[in-house]
């Protein structure tokens, strides 16, 4: 059985170590926060906050307190606030240990595409280009194939890039792969998924 969204998020949470400062993207990456358990993790929101808390209970929403997805959130005892230039200073400066984000395509050399599809409505890259260029470890969480069943792990990206040679690890519904010299290396498969099944669903070069 391939992993579902929550199982992918739970697997991604295993990437996080005690004491890490982490940035989580929109979508499945947001769910990762539910699975960090007892680990001491500080979440960064790139609009200017470290120590992001959960969504507020109804009636306690604060228009001055939102995350990078513009959702109302809460603060924690450890929270600090800062301006956008400082926020991206810590991102670009390699102070954030890991970013977990979604993708449209990942290439076997670590190229990432997740911000635009030519001919479709382009909304902008937001902070994604800064994050993948600056953060120490970039973990992509995404479905292994698109809605047509085609591999999203490619020899080369077809879409405009968000970053070049930036991805370290990919967690899909079929398993976990690392970007290594010469291609992607299978680290594990989802329970019930065979290595052959994962290879068959992957266009990128798999190395041993």
């Amino acid at each position: 059985m391939p992993w579902d969204r929550n199982q992918m998020a739970a697997r991604a949470a295993e990437e996080l170590e005690d004491g890490m400062y982490v940035n989580l993207g929109i979508g499945i990456p947001t769910l990762v926060a539910n699975y960090v358990g007892d680990k001491d993790i500080t979440l960064q929101s790139e609009n200017g906050m470290l120590g992001m808390g959960p969504f507020p209970v109804e009636g306690e929403e604060d228009p001055d307190l939102i995350n990078a997805g513009k959702q109302t959130i809460t603060e924690l005892a450890r929270t600090s606030y800062f301006d956008s230039a400082t926020s991206f200073g810590m991102i670009r400066g390699g102070k954030i240990a890991a970013a977990i984000l979604g993708a449209m395509e990942v290439a076997e050399n670590g190229d990432l595409a997740n911000w635009m599809i030519p001919g479709k409505l382009v909304k902008g890259m937001g902070g994604a280009m800064d994050l993948v260029a600056g953060v120490k470890k970039v973990v992509v969480v995404m479905d292994h194939t698109n809605k047509h069943g085609d591999s999203k792990l490619l020899k080369a990206c077809t879409l405009p890039l968000t970053g070049k040679n930036v991805v370290n690890r990919i967690i899909t519904n079929l398993g976990v792969l690392d970007v290594v010299d010469g291609g992607l290396k299978i680290i594990e498969t989802a329970a019930g998924v065979t290595e052959d099944e994962l290879r068959a669903a992957t266009e990128a070069t798999i190395v041993n």
Binding site: A85, F88, D130, A133, T162
Partner: peptide
Amino acid sequence: PQGTLAERMRAGGSGIPGFYTKTGVGTQI
């Protein structure tokens, strides 16, 4: 890119006409 925009503002106001960043290297930007 969001961080580039923030830094462009900070730099411009700080007497820094340009700066180098790795954000966007290898992309359309």
